[in-house]
């Protein structure tokens, strides 16, 4: 928490305070598409509702859930696949803080989708992110660790709808599975970092609601498909303006 944002202090039990419009202390190397937006969870999404659970057992590693979650929070961006960037807020993963993200669009394509997440909940054994308007998914995802017998298990569980019809179309033709692979790779990287020799990530996918929420079809006005296309097309103009102004060219 920062002294300049007293209204966003976490509550005593780990929840963030409600926020109308998001602000962030994170600094991105691309575009901040989050400031001024609202959060949008599974209730506000367009597509089918999925519950996805990714879990890996830390076999042979002598640790406990609290230690693992503290480690995960501290080094969260380092476990992501190299195609994505996570720009942490100044005070880290704390309730009420907003992180900025650059996510791959398709595979390892150079075009990135700029978005973010609000940390809505964090305690010693879990933390939860919620997406903003303009993210591909209207979702929250909870990262946690727990004991199963003598073994600590780390888990990421998402409850998600695609935000708009364009993304839903992408989900139908492969983005859904690609999203799964992202979290499978993340958990495998975390487990390997903790000393698991051959991490085996278990994935469970459950379609909780097959219906699309047509009343949210207008989410398309925030669609990252559109904003990413515009951003990509206008990149040369921004680059030229920066050069004229004597600024550093984008990487």
């Amino acid at each position: 928490m920062t002294a300049t944002q007293p209204d966003r202090k976490p509550t005593t039990d780990g929840w963030a305070r409600p926020v109308d419009k998001l602000t962030t202390t994170a600094t991105t190397r691309s575009v901040d598409t989050v400031t001024g937006r609202r959060v949008a969870g599974p209730v506000q999404g367009f597509g089918q509702l999925w519950q996805k659970t990714f879990a890996v057992r830390l076999e042979g590693v002598d640790t406990d859930p609290e230690t693992v979650v503290a480690y995960w929070k501290e080094r969260f961006p380092t476990f992501w696949p190299k195609t994505a960037r996570f720009y942490a807020p100044l005070s880290g993963i704390q309730p009420g803080e907003v992180a900025l993200l650059d996510l791959p669009t398709v595979g390892s394509a150079p075009v990135k989708m700029s978005t973010g997440v609000l940390v809505i909940y964090a305690d010693r054994e879990s933390f939860t992110f919620m997406t903003p308007e303009g993210h591909a998914l209207s979702a929250w995802i909870t990262f946690s660790a727990f004991r199963d017998g003598d073994v600590t298990v780390v888990q990421a569980q998402a409850l998600e709808r695609t935000s708009d019809p364009l993304i839903e179309l992408g989900y139908l033709v492969g983005f859904n599975r690609e999203n799964d692979r992202f979290w499978e790779a993340t958990l495998a990287n975390l487990a390997a970092s903790l000393g698991v020799a051959s991490p085996a990530v278990e994935t469970r996918r459950l379609c909780v609601d097959r219906r699309r929420q047509w009343k949210y079809v207008r989410n398309v006005r925030y669609s990252p498909v559109i904003s990413t296309t515009v951003s990509t097309v206008t990149a040369p103009v921004r680059w030229a303006r920066r050069r004229r102004a004597g600024g550093r060219a984008p990487e």
């Binding site: 929840w15 305070r17 409600p18 609202r38 969870g41 209730v43 506000q44 809505i120 919620m130």
Partner: peptide
């Protein structure tokens, strides 16, 4: 507040 935060 939590139901408002999550827009439930």
């Amino acid at each position: 507040e939590i139901l408002a935060l999550t827009r439930l």
